[in-house]
Every structure is written in structure tokens, then in C-alpha cells.
């Protein structure tokens, strides 16, 4: 079974600015999980469309509940493939992105179509679709739900990253509000606290074991 998801997004920049930003969007403050980026194929077709294949390495964290079911030495990185077609005549860009690592566990395929926003010609709209599936016996549904939730949060990050790069290109100081910075700090503190708690638990159980020896 495949889970389908779709949504629309709008960027308040013109199509050409967005297409330019598409190739310059890494790194940005919302892309810390992107480690490497490479073009591995590129060509201009006879009808003047640019086709490219980009290879990305991203960190990939499995949910904590799934760890017992996964191979211990599973790589913490995932390779992602992204094919794209830029057509300046129709002012559209189509991208297809999918993971080539851990695909049996969780496969996420995403298609985006970027084009001029019909209501405001100086804005760009993005139609995003995703297909999420898992072939992991017994856990596929749980993995799909996890994949969908993570996909949705990554869409938010992608859009924020885009806005940041666009603002930077247009010479504005990209706005990272105080509230956002504070929220991130809170999240980080929470993670640290959680990690400390887990560690304390581990130490406590070790201490207990020692007592009984």
C-alpha cells in the first residue's frame, strides 16, 4: 500500500528567481541534514529544456521505537536522487526526488511542479505530491505514518530554506525571528535533557546490576 500526500505552496518571488534559488539553496539554516550535493548528469535538450540529476547525502535518523528492529550498523546517511526539468518557455520546473538508501524500509517519492502563480504573476506556486511506502513486514504501516509525518515537517523546512535563500539573493537580511531562534534552542535543550535522562537510566541499571553481582 502506498500513502499519497499532496499540497500547494507559494513563494512570494518570481518564477525565474525561484528557479535560480533552486540551484543555490544549500546550505541554508534549515538544511543542516544535507551533507553533500552533486550534479551527476546535466544536459540541455534540443527543445531548450535543462535536465539535471542531483545526488544528495542527508543524515537519516530512524525513529527511536524502530531501532530494535533495524540492523545495528545501519548507515546514518541516506543517498537521495533528484531529477529535474527546467523549461524557461513554459516557465515551469518539474522535480522528482526519491531515496536510494533504505528504500525497503521507507520509500519516499516526491514530485514538485513549480510554475507561475495564477492569481499573482510575480509569485511562484509549487504543487507537491508524495508517495510513501514501506515493505517492512509487520511494521510497514507504522513506518509509513512516520515517513508521512517526517515528510510534512521537511516540507516546512524546505519552504523556509527557500525563502531564506531568496531573501539573501535579493539583498535583504533574511529574517530569522527571535521566536524561531528561541524555539530551536528550546528543542535542542529538550533533546539534550532527553539524552541525559536515557543515559542516567542506563547508568542506574548498570549500578543496580553491579549491586547484585
Amino acid at each position: 500500500m502506498v500513502k499519497y500526500f499532496s499540497c500547494f505552496g507559494v513563494l512570494k518571488s518570481s518564477w525565474d528567481q525561484v528557479f535560480i534559488a533552486f540551484w543555490q539553496r544549500y546550505p541554508n539554516p534549515y538544511s543542516n541534514h544535507v551533507l553533500t550535493e552533486d550534479i551527476v548528469f546535466r544536459e540541455v535538450t534540443p527543445d531548450n529544456r535543462l535536465i539535471s540529476r542531483r545526488l544528495l547525502t542527508k543524515t537519516s535518523r530512524a525513529p527511536r521505537w524502530a531501532e530494535p528492529y533495524l540492523p545495528v550498523q545501519m548507515s546514518r546517511c541516506a543517498y537521495i536522487m533528484e531529477d529535474s526539468i527546467v523549461d524557461p518557455q513554459t516557465k515551469t520546473m518539474t522535480t522528482m526526488t526519491w531515496n536510494i538508501s533504505h528504500a525497503r524500509l521507507l520509500s519516499v517519492e516526491e514530485r514538485c511542479v513549480y510554475g507561475v502563480n495564477p492569481e499573482n504573476g510575480s509569485w511562484t506556486q509549487i504543487k507537491r505530491e508524495a508517495w510513501i511506502s514501506s515493505s517492512l513486514y509487520g511494521l510497514s504501516r507504522a513506518f509509513q505514518e512516520f515517513g508521512l509525518a517526517r515528510f510534512k515537517s521537511s516540507v516546512t523546512k524546505t519552504m523556509k530554506g527557500f525563502e531564506y535563500v531568496l531573501a539573501k539573493m535579493q539583498g535583504e537580511t533574511p529574517s530569522r525571528t527571535l521566536a524561531e531562534t528561541a524555539k530551536e534552542a528550546t528543542e535542542k535543550a529538550r533533546e539534550t535533557a532527553l539524552a541525559a535522562k536515557e543515559k542516567a537510566k542506563g547508568l542506574a541499571s548498570q549500578a543496580q546490576k553491579k549491586q547484585y553481582v
Binding site: 500500500m1 545526488l55 531529477d83 518539474t94 522528482m96 526519491w98 536510494i100
Partner: peptide
């Protein structure tokens, strides 16, 4: 050993059901 050639261009872009 990164398998980048396994899939044709715009590869998994098969017509998929909107389930």
C-alpha cells in the same frame, strides 16, 4: 558504490494512484 544509474530519468515518475 552509490547506485545512481539504476533508475531512468525522472525514474519513479510512473502514474501513481492518488490513494
Amino acid at each position: 558504490d552509490i547506485p545512481i544509474d539504476g533508475v531512468e530519468f525522472m525514474g519513479p515518475n510512473k502514474e501513481k494512484p492518488e490513494s
